[in-house]
Amino acid sequence: MSGPQREQVPVTARALAWERRRRALAGFWREYARNRAGLFGLVGLSVFVVLAVAAPLFVDPGELSVTGAPGRAHQPPSLAYPLGTDTFGRSVLDLVVWGARISLTVGFLATAMSVALGTLIGIVAGHFGGWTSAVLMRVTDWFLVLPPLVLAVALAAVMTRSTLTIIIAIGVTVWPATARLVRAQTLAVEARPYIERAWALGAGHAHVMRRHVLPNVMPVVLAQTTLLVATSIIAESTLAFLGLGDPSTISWGGILQDARNAGAVSSGIWWYMVPPGLAIALVALSFTLCGRALEGVLNPKLRERR
């Protein structure tokens, strides 16, 4: 049905809607591109994502196992090993490139989990109000007050050591901020007249929440999400560093933990320690810059402040 209609350019409602969306997107991009830090973040982010996805093309997973290591231990940077080798003789550059896969995966999945949880709780609390809201927000505040690292560490410690555990531990800790934000936004959206129109036309709770509130809450959530990925990636490396990660996977925090255990700190083997930390910092910074740029575009009041 949509096929033939879209052929005859802007006459149908749907085509008009698409045209409007396309223009809105272009305007959005123009706004975003004006923020140089945001562009820098976007570039950094793309580089790391491409690197993580393409890692198998230039890293041989066999050489990343402790037994299949190609070099000798603790070699300083050379042509063969641009960033030197670790305790087992593995190339540190390869390790860092491969580590991007786990760090980014955990960052994205933990964020997805916490955003889904936060959005659901925020919308339900904002939509129903009253007792539902009071109870949900009390729980949210309680989570907000708990020291996030302590809670994540406790959760990671009581579950089995796996990447899924880390994702859950981070996801459960970081959702409250999103929930508060979404609730506030929901209240603002529901005060608008078009919601009343929807009620008058016989819409139910589910319809109002899904079709009217959710799409209007999403932009704010998007900016928050980008910022949360940075938090999640740092949290992942922290948990791995504390020895709570999956010992069989390679992650940036895990490499740092190995480096510390191998005495890289006291013997000054900087090439073992600097690259993974730098990678964490760059990725986190990229996401933060993107998130702030998005916030600036989506929330003009904030933009005045930046």
Binding site: I234, S237, G253, V265, S266, M273, P276, I280, A281
Partner: peptide, 22 residues
Amino acid sequence: ALLLWSVPSFWLGLLLIVVLAS
């Protein structure tokens, strides 16, 4: 501030040890 916020604190500590203490 944004840069320091992005740096994992434990890594910063390790770097300080390497540069200023070891």
